[in-house]
Design a binder for these strands. Sequence first.
RNA 1: GGAGCUGUGGUGUAGUUGGUUAACAUAUCGGCCUGUCAAGCCGAAGAUCGCGGGUUCGAGUCCCGUCAGCUCCGCCA
Length: 675
Amino acid sequence: MKYSGRQGFNRVVIIGEDELKEGRFTLRNMETGEQADLSREELFAHLTEEYREDTGGNGKESVSPAGKESNVTGGQAEVVLPEQAGPAVKTHYCGVLDQNFVGRKVKLSGWVGKRRDHGGLIFIDLRDRSGLMQLVFDQRMGSEMFRQAESLRSEFVISVEGEVVRRSEETINPSLTTGEIELKVENMEILNPSKTPPFYIEDGVNVDDNLRLRYRYLDLRRPEMLKRMQLRHRAVKLIRDFLDHYEFLEIETPMLTRSTPEGARDFLVPSRQHSGSFYALPQSPQLFKQLLMVSGIERYFQVVRCFRDEDLRADRQPEFTQVDIETSFISTEQLFAITEGLMAALWREFHGIELKRPFLRMPYYQAMDRFGSDKPDLRYGMELVELNDLARKSEFKVFLSTLESGGSVKGLRVSGGVDHLSRKDLDDLTLLARQLGAGGLAWAYVEEEGWRSPISKFFTSSLVEEINLKMEASAGDVLLFMADKWETACEVLGHLRTRLAPEKVSEEPHFMWVIDFPLFHYNEEEQRYDSDHHPFTAPKDEDAHLLDSDPLSVRAQAYDLVLNGVEIGGGSTRIHNREEQSRIFSLLGLSEEESKEKFGFLLDALTYGAPPHGGIALGLDRLVALLSGDDSIREVIPFPKTAAASCLMTGAPAGVSEEQLEELGIEIKKSSEKE
RNA sequence: GGAGCUGUGGUGUAGUUGGUUAACAUAUCGGCCUGUCAAGCCGAAGAUCGCGGGUUCGAGUCCCGUCAGCUCCGCCA
């Protein structure tokens, strides 16, 4: 079986029954006759290595979109078309032509960028998705065409024919990849004129988001946006190829499904045929992928849109894309290894770096205790310091009473904080801490002689020494203290930690797994337990005996993948036993009847030989944004929604006609409260 | 649901303690121009300062409300 299909491959893998059984394969180079005997893993490593070489991505060249000039169809300039498909509208991409094409006649099509009209000579920057090419219109080449050329304006769509010529030495533009050549235009057709665009179609523009989103199709014309789309495409392709190599099947699951009580608010879709009933758009294909495991798929994945009707953030959209993965008969460690391999492949391809594996694993409790976050940014230190024992020796009532009631006193050191944290800044931080739920915030400027601080009078000089020592503080630092319930102290200081993070942090990606999440948290509003992950997550075996006596201390077989303070994925081992699943439902306050009504199909499925299974979902938008270095996932989503979940281009969401509502049996309640 | 920031010609910005014709760059339109690449030179047009109300002799500027965008909290894996 040949695995070729792409030019440049010349090796053959010999696969037969024996090979499959034994997991050893022979790789033969058809040119040299060389043979190598490889294990499955070695073979795979070999193939991905060669694949990268063959596609020209040798790590150094394949960098983030900002660095890579062009990547159209593997880098060749010819437009790829089926043979004999009729006369060409376009034969080459402009941005990929170079000296090798000098003397060739080509036909280029694209958009008019900058225009430099010298009277008898006009220069046009022609832009297509690959880049720019300078067109030269000479009055002497023909007055009819020249008259047309004079009428060209920004964003006109044109098609030109001519000869690629070398520029004279002094007119070479070194800042352009095609700067050594230009096209002497012999023929031009204006395919479509354009109104003056509402903003400049160029990189680095500082335009109002309203405009960018309203004219997103123009925004996407900007080279940096095209590069983001290209990066996204390449990342998804790599992910598909990678998972395919590991024998995952991509299977689609329904978009119209039923609302389930857990988790986020659902987007609902009214049913016309069942008046008064609703579909829900999936928050994730969670149940379907588990059922696919019961179906015996064993390894499933899907690049899938998910929907959650909650308020938005820079890294949250109402619809977003997950790389959804579910496996049977695979240990958590093995799933970690596959996921890490996928991350390594992505970072190798797009940043040319080799990730250190395995990634760090840190229990949830430790992440909270040391960094005040379940997605800690490990690119810098600033760990929280536990000060209970030392705080007990002070005279400070806030500390003492907190400790008395079982709370914690924790500290955070801001190195060199004296220089950039004024009294006002500290007041602001105190205010912020209160807004985040803390009682207050104590602070101290560390000086040679001791602390300058409103609370220094409660601390003896030797205690100050001890605390300084424990927090590794020296003169010039600022210390922040918080006394509160352990969770609150950690969370709030964790917030301050990210707020006060150093400007310059390590460039290296700091991947980690946060593991051992609690299975439940207590929902104060609803007065009951809620799943921390989702209700199908299995408890850790060694904690299962605590389910009835102390549910909050039961840890889950759940994990998050975190990179530089961003959660890029999460998953768990699922419950595959019907009784255990029912038990969890009842702990969550679902009656037997309710759970049968809502999840009966799952409970049934679990009784028909459900294999042990588990999986993970990766946030594709966040992943791509991290790869491209963008702070907001909006940049890597072609048509994103605003923070208020509306689409400025289409005007969605919008009202519908009375007839439509009538058909659906829906009546809109007049929002008359205000009137 | 809450907090903060932003909103001035097409675009990006300036606009003083409230004061007279709201400034600059760029784009647009017209003219000149054969080696530019942020082309250049000359000229023209273009803004009820997001919207509504209030204070004032007078509001881009102060106050209240409102809309939109962004960021964060709540919410959400």
